[in-house]
Each structure stands twice: as structure tokens, then as C-alpha cells.
């Protein structure tokens, strides 16, 4: 499945090693007659490092990462434990700060934002799906879905909300508390929450990590549908090749650096890559 066209296009769009501060708009666009029109980059990291500790004890969780994520695409961030994939996601999502380098969401440079603006950004422009403990136990399913909007004091768009509810198939469980929902249902509520506010980008951190394979497949399907049918942008951290197969693109990290990527990955191609990475 190493189809040349799309992969080259992606590589052209998001060079992994350049130090160009604005790498997301290539002057060579469009490079070839691709079937897909050029896409806007929603989230980007440029030369990002993240160092914990200092001196001899310093640990470089990220050691110079430059990567961009385009609108309307489903990307998997992959790598072994300690590769920095979660750290990168936390930095991209405004949950953590970088040591050096630039993180942008749309036109916003996160380093310039204070806690208030950052919170507003997370609330209005980013959606989250975590591995576990995604929902507020005292709120019911519908309230959890609309939480970011409620925090902003906005009412959800009724049509869109209905569409999301139907997509995740939870209409019958809207007034249930998280404790009354199965693990898969809870993750579906989380996906719905991420979608309801129509964020610019959704970050999913091992969203299927705690689920059985059937429920996991369901969640991944929802995420993929969200991208394909609802035109959302999703970045998913995972270490599971099967999960990565649902995405349009897999970006690999190893030891805090980008270590290659695959377009339209399959479980097999990802597996291959990981095996090579490991060797």
C-alpha cells in the first residue's frame, strides 16, 4: 500500500526535518495533480524540544520535532513508550508547554497565550478524547457532550448536536450518568463531546486503550467518520497498528524525534515500520 502519490504529497507538505519557521505552506504547491486539493494546516510544531530536569539528569522528551497536521485528515501519532508521542500531543493541545520551539493552532502561537487564552483555546478550538476518565461523573451523557459549550455559555447548534448524537448512537442514553454507561459508551460520549463544539482539531489520546476490540473498532470508526463525513480534523496518539489503520496518515516518533511517516497506513505497513524502527 505504499502508494507513491499521496505519500509524496504529504511529505512535500510537511517536511519533517526542515528548520523553516513556516514550513506549512510550500512554495512548490501544488506539487502534482493530486486528487485532493491542498489543505490548511490546523496544528503545527516547529523545532519543538521538551526537556525535563536539568544538567546530567535532563531528559529530552522531545528533541527537535517539526510536524504539521492538516484540516480534514485523521492522523495517528505513533511510537513506543517513551518516544514522546504523548508529550507532543499534550504540547500541541495546550496542556503542556514546550522548552523551545513553536506550537501553533490555526494562527495562534501557543507560547504567547496566557492561561486564560489557552483555556479558551482548548474550550473553543480543540476537542479531547482521553484514554480513560473522560467524563464528569456528576453530569449525564448529554451534559458531558455539551460541556465545553456550556462552559463558554453557548447553546449547542441543535441540528449539529442531533447529527452527532445519531452518529455515536447514544440517543437512548442521554440522561444516563457515566457510571451507568459501558466503557465503550463512555468513550462514544467523549467523542461526541469532542465533536459537538466543532473544534478545529480533535486530539485523542489512546482512545481505545481501555476498550475491548469491538468497542475499540466502533470508536475508531466514529473518529474516521467524523473526518470523512463531518469534515473534522483528528490527531490520535496510539501504539496499536490496528488503530492506526483507520487513519489517513501515521507519524512515527522515536526518542523524541520524528522517525518517518506513512500515508494511508495499514496494520501491516505500520507493523513493518515499527519493526524496522525497533531494529
Amino acid at each position: 500500500m505504499l502508494a507513491g502519490g499521496p505519500e509524496r504529497r504529504v511529505e512535500g507538505m510537511t517536511p519533517t526535518t526542515t528548520t523553516n519557521p513556516a514550513p506549512t505552506r510550500s512554495p512548490r504547491l501544488p506539487p502534482d495533480p493530486a486528487p485532493v486539493p491542498p489543505r490548511r494546516v490546523v496544528a503545527g510544531a516547529t523545532d519543538v524540544t521538551k526537556v525535563y530536569g536539568a544538567g546530567d539528569a535532563a531528559v529530552h522528551a522531545l528533541a527537535g520535532v517539526t510536524v504539521g497536521f492538516e484540516a480534514g485528515r485523521f492522523t495517528a501519532l505513533m511510537g513506543p513508550s517513551g518516544s514522546g508521542k504523548s508529550t507532543l500531543m499534550h504540547c500541541l493541545a495546550g496542556l503542556d508547554t514546550v522548552t523551545t520551539g513553536v506550537i501553533t493552532i490555526g494562527d495562534a502561537d501557543l507560547a504567547t497565550l496566557g492561561d486564560k487564552a489557552l483555556t479558551r483555546l482548548r474550550r473553543d478550538r480543540i476537542g479531547f478524547v482521553f484514554q480513560s476518565f473522560n467524563l464528569i461523573p456528576t453530569l449525564d451523557a448529554l451534559e458531558n457532550m455539551t460541556l465545553p459549550l456550556s462552559l463558554a455559555g453557548r447553546r449547542p447548534d441543535r441540528t449539529w448536536l442531533d447529527q452527532v448524537i445519531d452518529t455515536v448512537g447514544l440517543r437512548a442514553r442521554l440522561d444516563h450518568r457515566p457510571s451507568e454507561l459501558s466503557g465503550g459508551q463512555q468513550q462514544r460520549v467523549a467523542v461526541a463531546r469532542a465533536l459537538v463544539s466543532r473544534p478545529e482539531i480533535i486530539f485523542a489520546d489512546e482512545p481505545t486503550g481501555n476498550l475491548d476490540s469491538r468497542a475499540g473498532a466502533e470508536i475508531l470508526t466514529f473518529l474516521r467518520n467524523a473526518v470523512r463525513e463531518l469534515d473534522q480534523t483528528v490527531v490520535m496518539v496510539t501504539h496499536d497498528p490496528t488503530a492506526a489503520a483507520y487513519t489517513d496518515r501515521a507519524v512515527f516518533l522515536a526518542d523524541g524525534r520524528i522517525d518517518g511517516e506513512l500515508a494511508d497506513p495499514t496494520a501491516a505497513s505500520v507493523g513493518d515500520h515499527l519493526t524496522r524502527q525497533g531494529s
Binding site: 486564560k116 483555556t119 474550550r123 476518565f133 462552559l151
Partner: peptide, 15 residues
Amino acid sequence: RELGLLRAVGMSRAQ
């Protein structure tokens, strides 16, 4: 954890 989640999805400190 709950508070962390609320903060992550956009609850401000003031809230």
C-alpha cells in the same frame, strides 16, 4: 482528575 479534565476541556480557573 475530574478537575483536570474540566480544565482540559475548557473550564477557566475563574470558573
